[in-house]
């Protein structure tokens, strides 16, 4: 180590690169969210359509006294949690299958898994209408096979549609998260459990599941956040049930010009999502054995 420069400029410079990025993120994300707090106590002159600085509790009181807002927030939380649940149930077998696949399959697997994510939101919504419509793929198949006598109507424009498409949209994120965790599990642990007489399901619940909890948790958070905040899928595919908190915020912001109420509702939604995410995280760390894994990961 002769001649090593006294000042380790690069390592120092490297951490400093965080500053501009952090600044941009604070300016672009944190400040706008902070401004929501400010706007939520402003007043609106609905005759002149101007927003006036004030310290008014009007929007918050409206929010707390209108139960339909809370129904919408509850719906967002439930649809996020439901998507997290369905994607984790479907995602586990897929992720474990990918983890057990030969190496050259894994690269193909990544591309196959990620390509649907690259299709625009609108493309997916559009495609599902063709699949699920009364003259769509599923109904045609069911009719041709004489399984049903008339087209199944509840496939499209119902809560089922929303749940299905939210699952579809978010499945790749969940699979990726669990897959990364599953790759790090020592396969010999599962073999040992099987050799000692554990049935496949027992081995899964007692060995694989606790060891992959960090990946599952990351997937649950991501899917929950993405699905709960989704506006277009419910409104274009959910039919009359498709009203969402997001669409209501959009409405208050655009059509009604009630920015204070829009801000208050957006903040309430964010708070509800955050609290649910914390609760979900808390539940996941309660899994038998999961705490040890997460704790070791931190050490």
């Amino acid at each position: 180590m002769i001649g090593r420069p006294l000042f380790s400029g690069f390592a120092l410079g490297r951490t400093h690169l965080a500053i501009p990025v952090a600044l941009v993120l604070v300016l672009g994300c944190i400040v706008p969210l902070g401004v929501l707090v400010v706007f939520s106590v402003f007043e609106v002159d609905f005759d002149a359509f101007v927003l006036m600085p004030a310290l008014s509790p009007r929007a918050w009181s409206d929010l707390f006294h209108t139960w339909s807002f809370w129904v919408l927030i509850g719906k967002a939380v439930i649809s996020g949690a439901a998507a997290a649940l369905t994607t984790s149930i479907l995602g586990y077998p897929i992720a474990l299958a990918l983890a057990s696949a030969p190496l050259n399959w894994k690269g193909i697997g990544t591309v196959v898994l990620l390509t649907p994510l690259y299709t625009g939101e609108i493309v997916r919504i559009y495609a599902w209408r063709i699949v699920l419509g009364s003259e769509g793929l599923i109904n045609t198949l069911l009719l041709d096979l004489h399984i049903v006598a008339s087209p199944v109507k509840w496939l499209l424009f119902t809560p089922f549609t929303t749940a299905l498409v939210l699952t579809y949209n978010n499945l790749p994120y969940m699979v990726l998260a669990i897959w990364v965790s599953a790759e790090m599990v020592d396969k010999r642990l599962i073999e040992a459990a099987r050799d000692l007489g554990a049935r496949p399901l027992d081995a899964f619940f007692k060995v694989t599941l606790p060891l992959t909890t960090p990946g599952l948790a990351a997937g649950v958070f991501a899917v929950f956040a993405l699905a709960a905040g989704e506006m277009l899928t419910p409104s274009l595919l959910g039919g009359t049930s498709g009203q969402t908190a997001m669409a209501m915020i959009d409405n208050l912001f655009g059509t009604a010009f009630d920015w204070p109420l829009a801000s208050a509702l957006a903040l309430a939604l964010l708070a509800a999502l955050f609290l649910t995410a914390v609760a979900l995280g808390f539940c996941l760390t309660r899994f038998k054995g999961a705490r040890a894994v997460i704790g070791r990961g931190r050490a």
């Binding site: 672009g28 994300c29 400040v31 706008p32 969210l33 401004v35 929501l36 706007f39 958070f221 991501a222 956040a225 709960a228 905040g229 989704e230 506006m231 997001m246 915020i249 959009d250 912001f253 920015w259 829009a262 801000s263 957006a266 939604l269 964010l270 999502l273």
Partner: peptide, 14 residues
């Protein structure tokens, strides 16, 4: 993690 629509509305407001 913050819904894109909330973020965009807040940015549009500012």
């Amino acid at each position: 993690l913050v819904p894109k629509s909330v973020l965009s509305i807040a940015q549009a407001m500012i």
